[in-house]
Simulated assay, not measured.
Amino acid sequence: MRRRASFGTGTSRTGWPTVVLAGLVYGGWLVATAWHAVLPAPVLVLASGWLLAWQGSLQHETIHGHPTRWRRVNDAIGFAPLSLWLPYRLYRRSHVAHHGAAVITDPGHDPESRYRSQDSGVAGLLGRLQATLVGQMLFGPPILVARFLLAEGARVVREPVRVVRDWAPHLLAVVVLLWWLDHVGLGLGRYVLCFVYPGMALTMLRSYAEHRADLSSPGRAASVERGGVFGLLFLNNNLHAAHHERPSLAWYDLPAYHRRHRARFAAEGAPIYRGYGEIVRRFAFSAHDDMVHPRHRVTPA
């Protein structure tokens, strides 16, 4: 974007909509896990996937300094490892780096970029599996987790003390979560299939087209204007250009900011989609972009 705001330190007042949201997310998760045996499988998958994706959106808010002025309180709200695989501390570090990247979308600068630096070997094959929206939602979750764990395994060799600090609180919380799952009779395999996998797939629907590596334009963050029910699920992060320009804005303030600045976003080249129906129609089986970043593409002689 043309202007770039600081990452943000949160709010001077308590964001009660976000507090209520946190109660719904964690209360809903407790109900879904406790009553999993009596819920029909399709209902369980839809409700549980929604709750896991919703918690991811909530964590995004807490990382950006909401709902209170106190980081420790916000971190405590977002910390619970419902997805099992991603320590909150690492998510926070990665997301701060994403917003601070010198070139957003360039995998050499942006740790959350979907783009890659090469199109050969295993990286190229996995990238092609994730090129379409269907491929991203279907294959993206296990690929993301595998790549993340491999990277963390390599990091153990380079910085073992830091890895222990990052993972120890997370793993202790996972032990508590697994105790609860065992207490309510919900097996780990079923939890992953009914909660974690669909939650990650829904999150990947949001992230699929939210950035485009257009080097000729400052507008690399997209907006999906009519989020509908997905706007609530993603806490208006579908208005991604507005979020990147004002990352400290609470989720319920983003729509008004987007409306005020929409014309400028469009003039700066930020992609604007009508809704997720358009995303599905255009990209379900077609690639959103060449996922080798423009800085790394080989131009034929």
Rank of each mutant, 00 (worst) to 15 (best):
I104G: 01
T68L: 03
R162F: 02
R69V: 04
N237D: 12
Q118K: 15
E112H: 07
P247W: 00
F79H: 11
V103M: 09
V164Q: 04
L21V: 06
V298M: 09
L129A: 13
H64L: 03
V196M: 13
L205F: 01
H170K: 08
S94I: 10
D289A: 13
G49N: 02
V298C: 10
M137N: 03
R71N: 02
W179A: 15
V292T: 14
L150Y: 12
L233V: 01
A53C: 15
C194W: 14
W16L: 13
L205Q: 06
L202Y: 04
V45D: 02
D75R: 09
L82D: 01
A250V: 04
H109R: 08
Q130K: 14
A123K: 09
L233D: 01
A242G: 11
I63N: 05
P271L: 05
L188D: 02
T33P: 03
V38A: 10
G121K: 07
V229M: 12
L46Y: 00
E61R: 04
V176W: 11
G127W: 02
S248G: 13
V174E: 10
A201F: 05
E245T: 07
Q59G: 14
A76N: 01
T11W: 12
G219W: 06
G56M: 13
A221K: 00
G127H: 06
Y26A: 01
H99E: 12
T68R: 03
V163Y: 07
R264L: 13
L205D: 06
A5D: 15
Y276A: 03
D166C: 11
P142F: 10
G231R: 04
E61A: 05
S248D: 15
E268P: 00
T11Y: 11
G227E: 07
A201K: 07
A53I: 11
P111I: 08
H244T: 04
V229Q: 03
Q130T: 12
H293C: 08
E210N: 11
V145Q: 09
L177C: 12
W29I: 14
A101K: 00
S48D: 12
H170S: 11
A76T: 02
A146C: 09
E112C: 07
R92K: 14
A301D: 11
P247E: 08
R264T: 12
A242V: 08
